[in-house]
Each structure stands twice: as C-alpha cells, then as structure tokens.
C-alpha cells in the first residue's frame, strides 16, 4: 500500500480536476438565477425572469423545437439503420465485415467541420442539379444528424449483442423458430438495454451537435446550439445561462437514465 500522503495527494488532485470539469456547469446554472441586469459577480439577488425571457425569445423557442424534432428523427434513423447493421456485424461472417464496421464508425472519426462542409457542398450541388432546396431544410439536417448518431448506435448495440448468449438463439432455431421470431422474441429482449442506451445517446449527440449543423441550418430553421452560438457572438447575459440550464437538466436526465442501461463510461 502507498504511504498515506500519496493517497491523499491523489484524492486532492482528483477533486481539483473534477472541480475544474464541473466549474463551467455549476457556474452557468448559478448565473441563470442572477437578478443583475448586466451579467457580473457577485449576484445582487435572485430571479427566474431570465427563464421567462428566454422562452419568450423566438430564436431560442424555435431552436429548441427544431432541435427536439431533429434529434428525435435522427434517433429513429440511427436505430433503423444501426440495429440491423449491428446484427449483421455480430451475427454473421462475411467478406468486408471489418471494412463495413470501420465505415459505420467513420462518421465519429471524420472531423465534424469537415464532414459538415462536405455535406454542405454536396447538398448545394444536388440543389443545382435537381432545382430543389436541401441545405437549410429539415431533410438536410436529418441526413447530417442521422450520420452523427449512427456510429454511437452501432457501437452500443454491437457491444450489447456481443454480450448476449448465442446458445438461446440457437436453441430457439433448433425448435423451429423463424429468424424473425428469434429476433423479436429472443434477441431483442436481451439487447433492449443496449438499444435504449443507443436511443438516448443518439438523441443527446444529435441535440448538442454544433459543427455539422452550422453548415446546414437555414433562415427560420435553426437548431438550439446554433441559436446559442449566434446569440453569444454579440451578447453574454443570463438569458443564455437560462437556456443552457434547461439544456443541462434535459441532457443530464437522459444520460442518467441511459446510465442505468449501459454504463456511461463504457460508451466512449
């Protein structure tokens, strides 16, 4: 065992680092309740007015609605594409399996700004080709967000599938169950935690995306993150803090829920 002071040193350093990581989160939640008209420290008093003001601002309210819609659809896309693909990757051997696995995880590796720029260019070229707007529409945003969420779904669901007992599926097959029945009655129930975690994670990842969306939002269709960044370029007040606090509460709840199904630390 280490000397006592070594242990204490590790505990102190860890506490300091965790405090550093949490500082922005705590700071912005605190500031959202300040009654100071111009953001400054220390607080003169506390109020909930900023929340009312934030909800009254079209950019934030519409941004929030767009973000929720986009994230919900992106989750469905990523589950619809990712769960079957994960099944193929874990249950079958086929030529090019490793390549496909790498490809499906690639959206996580390609920098968000580069992927966003490439999609933006491709969309504009398609618009010219077909004379139909894509960039700045919900459809364009959904393609980008489905792409962002897909690798997380593949990762969480393949991990979940790899952890299940294959012999139950084999037993069901030997008793004459069709592959669809096996999937519905055996595989699906056993990977449900992985799927729930994948859904929650996909939603969060899409909801907080900034780098890809920034190319693809249009007039009147802005996600919450872009609305926040645009606002921050010119203002810094407690309205932003109120919006941020609402987002922190929503995401925190979703992540704590998903932690029950798949440990957060394993998702990375």
């Amino acid at each position: 065992m280490h000397a006592k002071w070594v242990n204490r040193l590790y505990a102190t350093m860890s506490a300091a680092v965790v405090a550093f990581i949490l500082l922005p989160l705590v700071g912005i939640v605190w500031v959202s309740f300040f009654s100071n008209r111009i953001l400054s420290f220390p607080p003169e008093g506390y109020t909930l007015d900023w929340y009312v003001r934030a909800w009254g601002m079209d950019v934030f309210r519409d941004g929030f609605v767009t973000s929720v819609q986009t994230a919900a659809c992106a989750t469905l896309i990523s589950l619809g594409l990712g769960v079957p693909a994960s099944l193929a990757l874990t249950r079958y051997r086929f030529i090019g399996r490793d390549a496909i696995q790498t490809l499906l995880l690639a959206p996580m590796i390609v920098p968000g700004i580069v992927g966003g720029a490439a999609l933006f260019i491709a969309f504009i070229e398609l618009e010219v080709l077909f004379d139909h707007q894509i960039a700045g529409t919900l459809g364009g945003l959904l393609i980008a967000h489905g792409l962002i969420a897909l690798p997380w779904t593949v990762r969480l669901v393949t991990a979940s599938l790899a952890g299940t007992d294959r012999s139950i599926e084999e037993a069901a097959a030997s008793l004459g169950a069709s592959s669809l029945t096996i999937f519905r009655r055996v595989t699906l129930p056993s990977i449900r935690p992985g799927i729930v975690a994948a859904a929650l994670f996909s939603f969060v990842i899409s909801f907080i995306d900034l780098e890809k969306s920034i190319f693809l939002v249009g007039a009147g269709r802005t996600t919450l993150q872009i609305a926040l960044v645009n606002y921050l370029e010119w203002n810094l007040d407690s309205t932003v803090a109120a919006v941020a606090t609402v987002q922190i509460v929503i995401i925190g709840t979703l992540l704590l829920a998903s932690d029950r199904y798949a440990k957060l630390g394993r998702a990375f």
Partner: peptide, 29 residues
Amino acid sequence: LMILIILPLLMGNAVRTAAWMVILGDKGL
C-alpha cells in the same frame, strides 16, 4: 465520479463555451 466527469462532456460545446465566457470574461467569476 464517472458520471460527474462525463456529464459536463455532453452538455454541448455551445453551452460549455458560454459557461467559460461567463467565468473568464472581464466581469466574470
């Protein structure tokens, strides 16, 4: 501790940046 470390990660770049602006700004924390 794991949750405390990961939660801030997923609060989003826009929110985290705003928070650092609040902390590091001229009239900041």
